[in-house]
Amino acid sequence: MVIPQPPMIDRHGEPVDILLVEDNPGDVRLTREAFKQGQINNTVHVTTDGVEAIDFLCQRNEHADAPRPDIILLDINLPKMNGDEVLETIRGDSKLKNLPVIVLTSSSAEEDIIKSYELQANAYLTKPVDPVEFIETIRSFQQFWLSVVVLPPYDEQ
Rank of each mutant, 00 (worst) to 15 (best):
L20I: 11
P25G: 09
D27T: 07
V28G: 05
V28R: 01
R29I: 11
R29N: 11
R29F: 14
T31P: 05
R32S: 13
K36Y: 08
Q37N: 13
G38D: 10
G38P: 04
Q39K: 11
I40P: 00
I40C: 11
T43E: 14
V46A: 02
T48A: 07
G50A: 10
V51M: 14
V51L: 15
I54P: 03
N61H: 13
N61C: 11
H63K: 10
H63W: 15
A64K: 14
D65K: 13
A66M: 14
P67L: 09
R68Y: 11
R68G: 03
P69G: 09
P69W: 02
L73Y: 03
L74E: 07
N77F: 11
L78E: 12
L78R: 03
M81G: 11
M81C: 12
N82M: 12
D84T: 14
V86A: 12
V86L: 14
L87F: 04
L87M: 06
I90A: 12
R91L: 12
G92Y: 07
D93A: 11
S94H: 12
N98I: 10
N98T: 13
V103A: 01
D112N: 14
I114Q: 12
K115V: 00
S116D: 02
Y117Q: 05
E118N: 14
Q120F: 15
N122T: 03
Y124Q: 01
Y124E: 00
K127E: 01
P128Q: 03
P128L: 00
P128S: 02
P131E: 07
P131Q: 09
E133A: 12
F134W: 02
I135S: 08
E136L: 03
T137C: 02
I138G: 06
S140D: 02
S140R: 02
F141H: 01
Q143R: 04
L146A: 07
L146P: 01
S147W: 02
